[in-house]
Design a protein around this nucleic acid. Structure first.
Length: 501
RNA sequence: GCUGCUAUAGUGUAGGGGCCAAUCAUGUCGGCCUUUCACGCCGACGACAGGGGUUCGAAUCCCCUUAGCAGCACCA
């Protein structure tokens, strides 16, 4: 049966069910199941506290969050602050704020800098097992040997000698770069990236903001140890970690641990915003950006400032899923997700950009009552009093001989060069329809608020309704323009950020 | 270069031998509704990277080609 046949047949049998045929099944899609997750999971989100969270973190954190919520279990926030060079003391708080904004169901928080002794302990055990050794070679020299598949002299040392050197590292008898602990792997591993990778290194400067230690684990070591100790069952991360997963596997093997189940999703290209933490930091420093929430950045706080709701980010990320294919992030899709959340909530207002103030000749006194939300009459109306002096958006009247002022009346426009002469042209909506006059927004000249609408590609200056002042920090819809978040109302001026149409 | 992964409409995604002349969403274009160019509704457009195999049958399995990506750090 064709679709049309099925439909007409259903109409005969059960007309009340026809609606279901076209119902949009927009409940967020089910992502693929995770093997071995039936009895609950322990997952983690492991950001480096070098700045606030951005879109890239959003994907990782939301996807893991999705599975924890789906299967039940624990969700560990593990702050990976083992590189003093890449720790921004202020980022600790920012990460927490962003997580709260995203609504992640974090159940546990651990800081790797609190766990240094644990890593030292397991490092000692690794050496005792013969799985690790202290290498005092120059890193360049080691690299050359590695590429040839050759062992460095340090590899031949006994466990006792290694233990002694390791203690010297901890006792600060080595300086940065002079010694490192390596994990023994196959020296002839086809991928040179696997060969005797580093597990521990020394960092003397800068000082770590939270601890005084100078010996720090490299991520492959701390991650493997923590994943095991914290009981992590499933890991969802980007495919840039595939090689790391392989490296970490050596540790699981040495210690006889069962590794978690891994899923590596593809690379996500994001255009239109700055994403690299260092790039953002430099831009902020140089004054190019106003701060971490500058709307040209891809941080969660920038996105929030633009009126994107956390649920929209979440839905967009789940939509994208955990596919291994490289994808390009679609702002369109995110906006669409946001619109479905924000449209039912946002009150409607007039915003007149680039205004022309005119006197409407022969204008009768009128009070316009415009719905705060056309889909929800119960919300009431805003009342605008028109006494003759009004503001019109220049772009909407240019070249026109007639427009209808929404919820008010029609006006005719005679052009005297660039100067419009505007006159009352009746109340009948039908007249406007017949003349194909556009229905546009307007404002009374004596009841308006200056309003700046900031968009990524420029700023719109104009005026909005006075009651927008009561919408601070909320998303509104400026009719015919789009959704915007009212950022601040100060000194009688409104500043709003454009979200999307 | 080496090691590995991936390849479905503009974008994201479903589909893992027959139910696929391929799903859903988004987008674009028409139309309806409407005192917003919003929302809602209707319709249209639009893809299995290319080439070989295997098979009665391939988007699905295999091989090659091409393309993209990742890693090749004493970063995470």
């Amino acid at each position: 049966m064709s679709a049309a046949e099925r439909r007409s047949r259903l109409e005969e049998l059960a007309p009340e069910l026809v609606a279901e045929l076209t119902e949009t099944h927009e409940k967020s899609r089910e992502l693929p199941a995770l093997e071995g997750a039936e009895n609950g999971v322990v997952m983690r989100f492991a950001p480096n506290p070098s700045g606030p969270l951005h879109l890239g973190h959003a994907r990782a954190s939301v996807l893991n969050d999705y599975y924890v919520k789906r299967y039940g279990g624990r969700y560990v926030l593990r702050v990976e602050d083992t590189d003093p060079r890449r720790v921004d003391p202020e980022a600790y708080a920012m990460v927490l704020e962003d997580i709260e904004w995203l609504g992640l169901g974090i159940t546990d928080i651990v800081y790797q800098s609190d766990r240094l002794d644990i890593y030292y302990d397991w490092c000692r055990r690794l050496i005792e097992l013969g799985g690790g050794y202290v290498c005092v070679c120059d890193s360049e020299r080691f690299r050359e040997l590695k590429l040839k598949g050759k062992a460095c002299p340090c590899r031949e040392r006994t466990v006792e000698e290694n233990l002694e050197l390791w203690q010297k590292m901890l006792d600060q008898e080595f300086y940065e770069g002079d010694a490192t602990v390596r994990v023994k792997t196959e020296l002839d591993h086809p991928d040179p990236a696997m060969r005797d990778y580093s597990a521990m290194r020394i960092v003397n400067t800068p000082l770590h903001p939270r601890v005084e230690n100078t010996v720090f684990p490299l991520m492959n070591f701390s991650v493997a140890v923590d994943d095991h100790l914290l009981g992590i069952t499933h890991v969802i991360r980007g495919k840039d970690h595939i090689a790391n997963t392989r490296r970490q596997r050596y540790l699981f093997d040495y210690f006889g641990w069962k590794p978690p189940v891994y899923r590596h999703y593809g690379r996500m290209g994001i255009s239109g915003v700055v994403l690299s933490t260092s790039g953002m930091r430099e831009g902020i420093k140089s004054g190019l950006y106003t701060g971490w929430d500058d709307i040209h950045l891809g941080t969660m706080r920038a996105i929030a400032r633009r009126g994107i709701e956390p649920e929209a980010v979440r839905n967009a990320m789940i939509d994208i899923g955990i596919g291994e294919t490289d994808i390009s992030f679609s702002w369109e899709n995110l906006y669409s997700r946001n619109k479905e959340i924000v449209d039912p909530k946002a009150n409607r207002y007039f915003f007149v950009p680039d205004p022309v103030e005119v006197t409407v000749e022969d204008a009768p006194y009128r009070e316009a009552h415009a719905a705060l939300h056309p889909g929800d009459p119960a919300r009431g109306v805003r009342t605008l009093v028109a006494e003759g002096r009004i503001l019109l958006p220049r772009a909407d009247i240019e070249g026109r001989s007639m427009v209808r002022l929404k919820d008010l009346y029609n006006v005719g426009i005679a052009w005297d060069g660039d100067t419009p002469r505007v006159s009352y042209a009746g109340d009948a909506l039908e007249d406007a329809r017949r003349e194909k006059a556009p229905i546009i927004q307007w404002l009374p000249a004596d009841a308006k608020l200056p309003c700046t609408l900031l968009q990524q590609d420029g700023t719109l200056e104009g005026f909005c309704e006075p009651s927008v002042a009561g919408e601070a920090n909320r998303v509104v819809q400026f009719e015919r323009i789009g959704f915007a978040r009212v950022d601040s109302v100060e000194g009688g001026r409104v500043s709003a950020y454009f979200a999307h149409r």
